[in-house]
Computed example of a mutant assay.
Amino acid sequence: MGADHSSRRHWLARLVAGGWALAGARAVHAQATPGVSPQAILIGQVLSMQAGRNDHGVATRQGVEAGVRRVNAEGGILGRQLQIRVADDDAKPDQAEALAHQLVADGVFLLFGSIEGGPSNAVMKAANAKNVPFFAPMAGSPTLRRPLQPLVFPVRAEHRDEFRALLAHGGSLGMRRAAFLQSDTEVGRLHLANVQLACADLGWQPPLALPIGSEVSDAQITAMVQRLREARCELIFNHGSIGVYERLIRALRQAGLGIACYGVNSGSAQLAKRLGELSHGMLFTQVVPSPWERKTALTRDYQTDFRAAFPDPEFSYGSLEGYLSVRALAEALRRSGRDLSRAGFVKTLETASFEVAGFKLRYTREEHIGSTFVDTALVTRDGRFRH
């Protein structure tokens, strides 16, 4: 990122230790509706910044702050200022769950804006336990949607839609044999089931499953390369585990295998940066438009508001998704009316369809869809993403 490290540390320390615009939070907690006062609405956000080491988390949080500044400059939510209290879960699900419980105990109106599948599922667990809405988890886990989670309202598209888009692109090039790198967990197996369904629907052969644990040895990487060679796979893509995926891609290239390497949005920028020249020609799905182009009303708003809030950091997918998510939250709160309650918020969203600067979202009683937007971006020779 462009900001110098000292200013970044100062911003993070101020944000996490002091919260975001929390004057009067104790008075807010005392209201009949937790988190709601005549002047403000207090929201709790648990996300993985890892004390500034997680570039994606930091960028996401900056995008949220840029969006909050816009919302409040325009008069807030029916006259109430939007306030976000932030807690850093250090990318640890147990910590994310505990922090979500603490934010609810501190009197936030709802939970919002986690990143990554494990922490997001942990925050969902706390939201369900406390009967508190959870808006805009920025993760593609199927468990956030199926079975229906009455309190959870995603904004971004899920990984299932991204997997299908990657396979459809490969299929347009004549490919029919895919491999899927996934965590050897319940969620990872659910992702695999979605890949298997997509392959069947699109006329592909059943995918080669490459499940991995938390630790992957060099010998395991070598064995995966051999399995890919024997199965004559033409395409591989992943869910998460970008560190392992990077090692596998390097091993594939060293072995002279020309298998196409694709990926989902999660960690795409970090993976491309780590791979350097080896990322050139890789295809990634993205769940927001290009943050560098001004082709949509959303990205034009984002670029103006983000640059006003942060003169130095680069535009990114993470900050755009954070910006979109908080603006969607603001619209959902407005639609819930002046007499705000958690039950009323949920009821409003159960039949809501709306746009945020042209970006469409939809929710029903049967399915909390959010967005179905999935785009593909190719990594160019200069390391940029071309949509």
Rank of each mutant, 00 (worst) to 15 (best):
D184T: 05
T185P: 11
E186T: 14
E186F: 10
V187C: 05
G188F: 06
G188C: 12
G188Q: 08
G188T: 11
R189N: 13
R189T: 11
R189G: 05
H191K: 11
L192S: 10
L192N: 06
L192I: 03
N194Q: 15
N194K: 12
N194W: 12
N194C: 08
V195Y: 13
Q196F: 04
A198H: 04
A198Y: 00
C199E: 00
A200R: 12
L202K: 01
G203Q: 04
W204C: 00
W204A: 02
W204L: 04
W204S: 07
W204E: 00
W204I: 01
P206V: 10
P207E: 02
P207M: 04
P207N: 06
L208K: 00
L208A: 06
A209H: 03
A209C: 00
P211T: 09
P211N: 12
P211R: 00
G213C: 09
G213S: 06
S214H: 12
E215Q: 15
V216L: 03
V216T: 10
A219E: 14
A219G: 11
A219K: 08
A219Q: 14
A219W: 07
A219M: 11
Q220T: 13
Q220K: 13
I221M: 08
T222W: 03
T222S: 15
A223S: 15
A223H: 13
A223G: 14
M224N: 09
Q226H: 08
R227P: 09
L228H: 02
L228K: 01
R229K: 15
E230A: 14
E230P: 00
E230Q: 15
C233I: 07
C233M: 12
E234N: 09
E234Y: 10
L235H: 11
L235G: 09
L235Y: 09
I236D: 06
I236T: 08
I236Q: 05
I236C: 06
F237K: 06
F237Y: 01
H239C: 08
H239S: 14
G240Y: 01
G240Q: 03
S241Y: 08
I242T: 15
I242G: 11
G243F: 03
G243A: 04
V244I: 13
V244N: 14
Y245I: 02
Y245D: 09
Y245N: 13
R247P: 11
R247N: 12
L248Y: 03
I249C: 11
I249A: 14
R250N: 08
A251H: 07
L252S: 01
L252P: 02
R253V: 08
Q254M: 04
Q254T: 06
Q254C: 01
A255V: 06
G256A: 08
G256L: 10
G258R: 15
G258V: 00
I259F: 05
A260D: 13
C261I: 04
Y262I: 00
Y262V: 01
G263Q: 07
V264Y: 09
V264H: 06
N265A: 14
G267W: 01
G267T: 04
G267K: 05
